[in-house]
């Protein structure tokens, strides 16, 4: 099986030849090319090159066109702050007070230079791997984007005090997100990872989510012209699994703070589980720990398909050593072969 066949089989809730494995490495590509993180993400061809080199090295089952979380913010004219040892962050929010939303206009995604670099990188990856490897595109959900557009506390205020302006912002963000996702699919992305940490029950109670993030996701995902994976970026989601499935998404990226077996059982036949290795702890794993963590995850969620092994955040920290990533890969290739008879042994 090639990587795409392996992933499609598991999404079909069947066991492929091996547990598919998404190593969601982004910044590590800069190391491969001997560039700083800022230099690396300046050009789509470099990111494509980095992704292809990392897939060759770590033998995982996807390419990942993700540059950094505030790509949308940069495209909207906001500030992005680079650092040498971690992911770029959004700077001062460009919506400083709620009333600004009344007159807010967002640009067309494809008019932005950074968006075009991501699309360029996606096209290069697609030309290289064709239909043998899934290329994962990324959007920030319209419901989670305001964390960077206006800051957490202003956003909480908006939701609870100005539902009219909340709806207006959602409408603007949805249009942007749909166009951005579809442009990535057109450039060659196989599926879109819909990052939605604000919908996790870590941030929003279930009853509020049903009135807000759920409705936004249903509308948005319904208009994305390809498969989607909803990622909670370390947030919890067990109480909203059924609702997530009802948004039309196929995969859910889950937190290390939740029991993988319980998640898998709840997702059964409805969603494929993506996760949930602890990216923060990973920084200090040795070969033996990496093998044990991979074995545990496969044992808890691997049987019957419907499972892709990955980290729990959707972005491996810069501080995770190459040796650990190689150990994880080695363990998946050793313990992930179906049928998982060893997983039944006591």
């Amino acid at each position: 099986m090639n990587s795409l066949e392996r992933v499609l089989t598991t999404i079909g809730q069947k066991e492929p030849d091996r547990v598919p494995f998404f190593l969601m490495v982004t910044m590590h590509g800069a190391r491969e090319l001997g560039l700083s993180i800022e230099e690396y993400f300046a050009k789509g061809e470099q990111v494509a090159d980095g992704q292809l080199k990392m897939r060759k090295k770590y033998k995982h089952d996807c390419l990942y066109n993700f540059f950094y979380a505030p790509v949308e913010i940069e495209a909207m004219g906001g500030e992005v702050i680079f650092r040498e040892d971690g992911p770029p962050n959004s700077g001062r929010p460009f919506i400083e007070n709620i009333e600004q939303i009344e007159m807010l206009k967002l640009p067309v995604p494809t008019e932005s230079p950074i968006i075009n670099e991501v699309l360029k990188g996606t096209r290069i990856m697609k030309a290289e791997v064709g239909d043998s490897v899934p290329i994962i595109g990324v959007v920030m959900s319209p419901f989670s984007l305001p964390i960077m557009q206006m800051g957490f506390s202003n956003y909480f205020d908006l939701i609870f005090k100005r539902p009219d302006l909340f709806q207006r912002l959602m409408s603007l963000n949805e249009n942007f997100c749909i166009a951005w996702a579809n442009a990535q699919l057109e450039a060659g992305a196989t599926a879109i990872c819909y990052f939605d940490p604000f919908s996790s029950v870590t941030v929003t109670p279930k009853n509020e989510y049903m009135k807000t993030g759920f409705e936004v996701a249903k509308r948005t995902i319904g208009q994305i012209q390809g498969p989607t994976a909803t990622h909670m970026a370390s947030g919890r989601c067990l109480p909203i699994i059924d609702s997530l499935a009802n948004t039309g998404t196929l995969i859910v990226g889950v937190s290390v703070e939740e029991d993988l077996k319980e998640i898998k059982d709840t997702c059964k036949e409805k969603l494929t589980v993506l996760g949930n290795l602890n990216g923060i702890e990973m920084c200090r794993w040795d070969d033996k720990t990496a093998e044990q963590k991979v074995k545990d995850a496969i044992k808890r969620a691997g049987k019957g398909g419907g499972f892709i092994l990955a980290d729990n955040h959707g972005e491996i920290p810069w501080q995770v050593p190459e040796e650990v990533l190689l150990s994880i890969s080695k363990a998946v290739h050793k313990w992930g072969k179906y049928p998982l008879q060893w997983a039944d042994e006591k």
Binding site: V201, T202, P205, E208, R236
Partner: peptide, 8 residues
């Protein structure tokens, strides 16, 4: 513990 949300 996962019983309440950050907004709360």
């Amino acid at each position: 513990n996962g019983d309440h949300a950050l907004s709360q």
